[in-house]
Nucleic acid binder design. Sequence first.
DNA 1: AAAGTATGAATGAAGG
DNA 2: CCTTCATTCATACTTT
Lengths: 180, 180
Amino acid sequence: MDEGMSGFCIKAASFRGSGGGSGNGNNGTKCGRWNPTTEQVKVLTDLFRSGLRTPSTDQIQKISSQLSFYGKIESKNVFYWFQNHKARERQKRRKVSIDDKDFTRRDQDKISSEKQLNQVSEPARVIETLQLFPVNSFDDSEAEKMRFHANEYFKEATAFAYRVGTEMDHPPLDLRLSFL
Amino acid sequence: MDEGMSGFCIKAASFRGSGGGSGNGNNGTKCGRWNPTTEQVKVLTDLFRSGLRTPSTDQIQKISSQLSFYGKIESKNVFYWFQNHKARERQKRRKVSIDDKDFTRRDQDKISSEKQLNQVSEPARVIETLQLFPVNSFDDSEAEKMRFHANEYFKEATAFAYRVGTEMDHPPLDLRLSFL
DNA sequence: AAAGTATGAATGAAGG
DNA sequence: CCTTCATTCATACTTT
């Protein structure tokens, strides 16, 4: 749209460290979209495997902070990464599930067992000590009161805007849009 | 590969205003979710910029009515648009901030310049006569009667994103990443 | 290089 | 208001 729309920065020929290169500690990535390094992807994937699905703001900040060591990264990148990863994990699952409806051929095909053999060869096996999800998951701040919801507007079936039977012939405000 | 299998409608190559292309004067009956036209987005954005944050029911009706000229639209679309826009404006500021790699110099940093002038190629300056915020009836939430009036969220430059003091508490979880 | 795939980013729609 | 899901767009990357 207008504001923080998709960056129109020059598309730099930035290459990811795919293949174990990881030479993009400080790649020439100008703008455009974030290109995670292999290390970053590895950590993120590991976190995901550890059970992290939707990190909170604080978690995102921490992760982003840690991952910034490997290259440029912002909080929103982490946020998007988890959103996408989870969404696609589910999407894949759903696809397979639907595809399984007709089991005429049970030769199992290959489906997506060949997705990817987990990252590139990383000789140095790192140790990660991550403690996520203690036992909480409490929805504490719920003091908010549910206001009228969209339902109020969803009655547009007949566009019959029920008006308050007071004296207002028309709303006090005069919203006129004269354009084009 | 995975195409819109879930989509029950014809997959029209309708482009939104993303990227400026906006080849959608009137997209071809794209059912499913609302796909705003560039004109609609422009008006909505303008309204938002004018300070409108949570339009009332009648306001939504009017806006929707006006915008229906540019294409199919419902009240709930307007409602959701404002909700999302505001929420994301806020979210954006929260996520794009705490990320600072080094404070080598405090005046060299240009900081957030990613936002660019949204000057859409609109030579003909439209005229908008909108009188909002009269003394209109309060929606349902009195909690936001006296708050931001207009440019509360348009502090683009923002040398520093002041931290909202809502994260004083430390999360119960301990995220530690010991790798490398 | 074109076509195909993987994935970052954006946003409509809901839920709570 | 906030968070999350789903769908789509745009682009980096891979394969042919």
